[in-house]
Amino acid sequence: MASPPFNPVGDPRVEHRHSQVNGYNYHYLYAEPANGKFEATVFLIHGWPDCSAGWRYQIPLLLDMGLRVVAPDLMGFGGTDAPKVPPNDISLYGFKRASDDIAELAKIVGSRQIILGGHDWGGAVVWRAALWHPDLISHVFSVCTPYSAPSKQYISTEDLARGPLPQFGYQIQLASGEVEKFIKDEPSIRQFLKGIYGAKGANGEHLMIPEQGIIPETLPLVGDSRLLNGKMLDYYVQEYSRHGIHSTLNWYRSRKVNWEQELELVKQNKKTISIPTLFVQANFDSYLKPEMSKSMGAFMPNLTRGDVDATHWILMQKPAEANLIIKNWLQGQGFGLKTRSSL
């Protein structure tokens, strides 16, 4: 019998904690197995437009397996600080900074090594964290987001959208500053979240089209979402209303600074991730399509692959299938074998 997903409001299995991490306040979910004993710590990193609660179906599984869980809100999201850019540097929303903050948070909770998992932007973060902090991370997994090695050549989002990845056109819009003009208060944030998580208009209108971005005219038309509704939707609206959407979109503005900082990885020839890795593909992902992951195995000698017939929101759309892949991989690495864990 599977443990139910946690409720971010009042669930005794999970604590809401705050810590100063490299000068900024981070909010994170903290959970230990019921007996207070754990054999390893798993950090879970969310994507956009999500928050730490995006892992609500996976955290109970990991606790059942005897693992401790730490799931932070990324910079600019939820209860974590959202420094303005400018005057602050956009690198605060980059992979190097996120990797360093994960390392610092691991120190704060007393972990010398961690298992690291991510989804969407979080998936991109965890691959980079494995390069920047190889001694900290013992195992790493990503849901939906394939690995691409650091490159000496800079390729802009515009170049990607014009070339091999036309479905990245939405990223140009999200980085432009236009979205904040029409998603700017609680009602519009609510409609936005419903639409991103699968709700459509009465005539099947999609709020977001990969090649174009968010369609403003569709915002008032979207109905209810099967994936995000009720009290969970209320929680997400509350979390996104703390800072507004602007700070979360800074992640789409950091591509060049990521490249600049990763030239150091290129210089040191740090492209291969040799620790055990897992990649979970959502077969119906319209943004991070299956063909994008074809070559990543060349940089990962210990790669395990899994796939689920699901969209980008696999963690909440098909949690049992995603959890089974994660569970089997972790058990194959020797974790959770002493407990009778369930999905």
Rank of each mutant, 00 (worst) to 15 (best):
F284R: 04
N250T: 00
K37N: 06
I90Q: 08
A98W: 11
L136D: 00
L227W: 14
L74G: 03
P187H: 05
I114V: 15
Q317M: 00
W251Q: 11
H139A: 05
A202L: 07
A106H: 02
A298M: 09
L136E: 03
Q173P: 12
G336R: 02
A31I: 04
P134V: 13
L228N: 02
L74C: 13
L263T: 08
H312C: 06
K96Y: 04
R253Y: 08
S19L: 05
G76E: 08
K338Q: 11
G169H: 10
R128H: 12
L62R: 05
F6T: 08
G122C: 12
S286D: 15
D185P: 04
R97L: 07
K181P: 02
F38Y: 15
F77L: 08
V70M: 12
T339L: 07
Y170K: 01
K184Q: 03
T218K: 06
S3M: 03
G36N: 11
M232S: 09
K231P: 10
G79F: 03
A202V: 11
D89T: 07
K289R: 15
E264V: 14
N328W: 05
A130N: 00
E180C: 13
Y147L: 11
E186Q: 14
I214P: 02
E239H: 07
K270G: 01
I115A: 13
T277Y: 05
T157Q: 13
F192D: 01
P216R: 13
H46M: 09
G36A: 07
I114W: 13
S342D: 05
K96G: 07
G195K: 11
S52H: 07
G213T: 09
E39A: 12
V9L: 15
T339E: 05
V126S: 06
P83M: 12
P164Y: 08
K184M: 05
